[in-house]
């Protein structure tokens, strides 16, 4: 990433943290690229067997991209909350483009190309989940937030509790019922 690009990115982050919503839209493709390249390196053969720690990845991405002193991070919660949101947007977009696999001329002609179907299943699950989560947000914003932090942001129960200023027991309970509701919604 060139210096000019880092500069642009930092500026966008600053703008966004100051409330400029359109900056967020422009951030996504840039950060997405970076995340992907990082993920690729993370997951390359030399490191096989190392499980991917989502929060570590996001942390590293932000550290590399941003001159933190200039960005107005209010607290740890804000930071994680934003990253979770960001991850959600990036991943769901990516999933949407993957969820529809190539089907050729008709259901009964053989697949021309399976490369695209590799994770179609997973991708479409994520898309469906995102839709369901939006519905849950309407019913219970706090639960939706918890799911976003844990599922998209990769936070543990304890970390989520810290970010939201709630007890771990509460998080667990909310998580369980949210899980039940979401699974039910997806199975319909």
């Amino acid at each position: 990433m060139t210096e000019a690009q880092t500069h642009e990115l930092t500026q966008l982050l600053i703008d966004w943290s100051n409330g400029d919503q359109s900056a967020f839209d422009r951030l996504i493709p840039l950060i997405g690229e970076e995340l992907r390249r990082l993920a690729h390196r993370y997951m390359s053969r030399e490191r096989a067997g190392h499980t991917l720690q989502t929060t570590a990845l996001v942390n590293e991405a932000f550290v590399r991209l941003v001159n933190r002193k200039n960005v107005n991070w209010q607290n740890r919660a804000h930071f994680f909350g934003i990253s979770a949101q960001l991850m959600r947007t990036i991943l769901v977009d990516h999933a949407r483009s993957h969820a529809c696999a190539k089907r050729g001329g008709g259901a009964f002609k053989l697949e021309l190309d399976e490369a695209l179907v590799i994770s179609q299943q997973k991708a479409s699950e994520v898309v469906a989940l995102d839709d369901a989560l939006k519905e849950l947000a309407r019913l219970d914003p706090q639960q939706s937030r918890i799911v976003e932090l844990r599922f998209f942001g990769g936070l543990t129960v304890e970390e989520t509790a810290e970010v939201l200023h709630l007890s771990p027991a509460t998080i667990k309970r909310e998580w369980s019922t949210a899980k039940a509701w979401l699974y039910h919604a997806l199975a319909k």
Binding site: H94, V126, F152
Partner: peptide, 26 residues
């Protein structure tokens, strides 16, 4: 129905999304 769903859910969303989709990214 929800109790049932919970029982069926198993590993559902226990693994963070990024890790779930890591297969599609890399």
């Amino acid at each position: 129905a929800l109790i049932d769903s919970y029982a069926r859910a198993g590993n559902f969303i226990e693994r963070p999304a990024y890790e779930v989709m890591a297969g599609s990214l890399t």
